[in-house]
């Protein structure tokens, strides 16, 4: 597939030919629609693509990864897996060496609570059921669970890792900002002008 620059170069040269301008301007518009709709958003840097966990033990990392994917699954849009959420959390905590020991301890305690709840050794169905149980205090204020604080911590950081990734921000939420635009889209909905 030609790059956007190839398309533009070709269109500029072709437009110089007799009768070419009109044809190629229509073709250029069609080609632009056919391409990625999120051209304003550059690709994600490869930082996390081949990242090997450094903070969590292999068992904790596997458990964390599984939990992040339960919380933000891959469905019709990418999820925590494509966004490398567990990898980002590990990267962040490893970078906290010497500067944020409290933060690191909080996460070690969280993973210990999760392990004590049995998450590490359960199969997929068992994990799904356990997460439902751990998260119950979110829905029912009278409920408690010893791993609820761990769930909240992981949910908070997983949410941040996902929606600050390209997968979350661009593919899932379709964020339009940070782009060059010729106009600002004014509200054109009559129903918004009345209360």
């Amino acid at each position: 597939m030609p790059s956007r620059r190839d398309v533009l170069d070709l269109a500029v040269r072709a437009a110089a030919l007799p009768g070419g301008a009109e044809f190629f301007s229509a073709w250029l518009r069609a080609a632009a629609v056919d391409q990625d709709d999120h051209q304003h958003a550059p690709p994600e840097p490869p930082l996390l693509r081949n990242y090997q966990p450094k903070f969590f033990s292999p068992a904790d990392f596997a458990a964390l990864q599984a939990l992040t994917e339960i919380l933000i699954p891959t469905d019709d849009t990418p999820g925590a897996r494509e966004a490398h959420c567990a990898h980002y959390i590990d990267y962040l905590l490893h970078a906290a060496d010497d500067v944020a020991p409290d933060m690191q301890k909080q996460w070690r305690d969280a993973m210990a609570a999760l392990q004590q709840a049995g998450f590490h050794t359960l199969d997929a169905n068992g994990r799904a059921a356990l997460v439902e149980e751990i998260s119950k205090p979110e829905r029912d204020r009278s409920a408690t669970h010893p791993a609820f604080a761990a769930y909240r911590l992981i949910k908070q950081q997983n949410t941040f890792a996902f929606y600050t990734s390209r997968a979350g921000m661009i593919d899932a939420l379709d964020y339009k900002g940070n782009s060059y635009n010729t106009t600002f889209p004014a509200c054109d909905h009559p129903q918004h002008h009345v209360i």
Partner: peptide, 27 residues
């Protein structure tokens, strides 16, 4: 309207695909 980061997201109860749809709906 939309913002670069959905500040409200982590405070929305739940998880999974239904939660993702709720986050998108509020975005």
């Amino acid at each position: 309207g939309q913002t670069e980061y959905p500040q409200y997201a982590a405070s929305v109860p739940g998880y999974g695909s239904a939660w993702k749809k709720e986050i998108k709906s509020r975005y």
